[in-house]
Amino acid sequence: MPDDDHRIQVNLGRLLAERNMTLAELARRIDVTVVNLSVLKNGRAKAIRFSTLTAICDALGCQPGDLLEVTR
């Protein structure tokens, strides 16, 4: 299966907007670079570490299912 052949949608932008949080602030809180978070937010990431996922969910008070969804 090609690397880009997936239907995972990342809802980081929506979650941040709902919490009035900027990407830079989240990056500072979870100690991940803004560049990497931007890659994730814009759907260019191919994979996400469990540690990153845990940190984002902790910081945003959400579940992995809120952040990621499979589009139809």
């Binding site: 690397d3 991940v32 990497n36 890659v39 990431a45 191919k46 994979a47 990153t52």
Partner: peptide, 8 residues
């Protein structure tokens, strides 16, 4: 390397 490219 290809596997880790795009890994966040």
């Amino acid at each position: 390397r290809a596997d880790t490219e795009g890994l966040v």
